[in-house]
Simulated scan of single mutants.
Amino acid sequence: MSAPISSSLSDLAMLGQTLKANSERIVAESAAVFASAGRERAHPFPLDAVPGGLPLLLSELMALLPQAIAEGDVTLSAGAEKLEVLAELRLDVVIKALEGVSEVVVMELKRLEGSVAKGFLDEACRETRLFFDLKIAHYCQKFVAAQGTELTLHTRQLDEASERLAADGAGADAAAHSRVQLLQGVIHELRNTLQSVVLHATSVVDFPREAGVAEVMQRLTANGIRLQELLDRLGLYASLLAGEWSNRMESVDVGVFLQDLEVRHRGLARTASTRLTCRQTSGPSQIITDAGKLSLIADNLVTNAVHAAKGGLVQVEMSEGGTGRMLLTVTDNGHGIRLTEARHLFRVIHHVEGSKFSGLKLGLLASRHLAHLLGGELTFESEEGRGATFQVSFPRVLR
């Protein structure tokens, strides 16, 4: 419950006293937001990650907010540089946590509705959001700067690997050719995403009160989360990109494989209100293949399908695919893929205006390369408005 505030106070004084009187509860609720942001991405977010702790961050806001409202043109970023970048913190978790804390404080301010002037309260809420927007923007700038050397090295290494493969005439081999495409895709995504994060963060920091800053922040948030996802992929595909991922053959129980796949994606499907089914329709119960590679392919295809279906149906089937071969088929009844986009689906450097295909697309490039390493191929069929079917054909016994 909020602490009572005297009605004889001015709007500005009432605002300051409300924040001060309820600071402990605001800190507790904000701490819960930080913890939730970490759990959502299976990554802890310690409160001491914010220099001086969360209470200091909120104290800074409480000190600056009345002045910003009173003077009308005070920059709230005075202390934003204090938010240090720590290597163990994920960018997406930091963004989500600070967005959440912003809304906790705004909700606290809205408890004053009816007690202070509406225009004053609206301005207080705007300034609060601006304070946290600037924190996020500064953090993104510092994150990119801190990652700069390593990312530049990554990009240079990927460029060199791509050039070597092209010079060696690797295009004659399907696996080598798809690896070149994956390398090019990662380089393209990395450069574009880094550039977008820097441009949007700089725009918010330099022009925090310009019209359209809310839209810029939305793009910054989306690209910041995208950058973290890309960095995750770089780690996941490190050996694959280096061409050092050899096949590990083992006996795979098809029923168990499909059951595990369904369990891994049950939460995602539930969040998207999508029905997910996994079953075997024909073929042997045991196959010999690289379970790790096949799982990565299936994970990528199912994740894409669930995002595409959203409230619909995703069906995964394992079946016999001709002499000595198996088929892994993932079908969704989502929006489908336009013909203009379908022609370039495995070329991440091609952008189709108005594309409905979300995600990095690197998962598709990686899946195709993994299929080639398994002696198989990844193909798809789709009609706009009627969903899509992705199918992996691979040997029943990998040799």
Score class of each variant (00 low, 15 high):
Thr274Leu: 07
Arg279Lys: 04
Leu230Asp: 02
Asn304His: 08
Asn300Asp: 12
Ala214Arg: 05
Thr221Val: 07
Thr274Asn: 03
Cys278Gln: 01
Leu236Pro: 14
His307Tyr: 08
Glu210Phe: 10
Thr271Gln: 07
Val254His: 02
Leu268Asn: 06
Ala269Thr: 03
Gly321Lys: 01
Asp232Thr: 03
Leu294Glu: 05
Ser203Gln: 11
Thr277Tyr: 09
Arg264Met: 15
Ala305Pro: 05
Ser295His: 07
Ala309Cys: 00
Ile288Lys: 08
Ala269Leu: 01
Leu301Asn: 01
Ala242Leu: 05
Gly235Thr: 10
Ser246His: 05
Thr271Tyr: 05
Met217Val: 14
Leu301Lys: 02
Asp260Cys: 15
Ser273Thr: 15
Glu215Gln: 10
Thr303Trp: 13
Thr221Gln: 11
Phe207Tyr: 05
Ser251Asp: 15
Glu215Leu: 15
Glu262Lys: 09
Arg270Glu: 07
Ala238Glu: 09
Val302Tyr: 13
Lys293Cys: 04
Ala238Trp: 11
Leu236Met: 04
Leu220Gln: 05
Leu194Gln: 09
Val306Ala: 09
Ser246Glu: 09
Arg270Tyr: 07
Ile287Glu: 13
Asn300Leu: 14
Gln195Ala: 13
Ala238Ser: 07
Glu317Met: 09
Leu296Tyr: 06
Leu231Tyr: 00
Ser282Tyr: 07
Leu241Tyr: 10
Gly312Val: 13
Asn304Thr: 08
Glu262Asn: 08
Val198Gly: 01
Gly321Ile: 01
Gln195Phe: 09
Ser203Ile: 15
Met318Ser: 08
His307Met: 04
Arg248Ile: 04
Gln259Val: 13
Arg275His: 08
Glu215Asp: 10
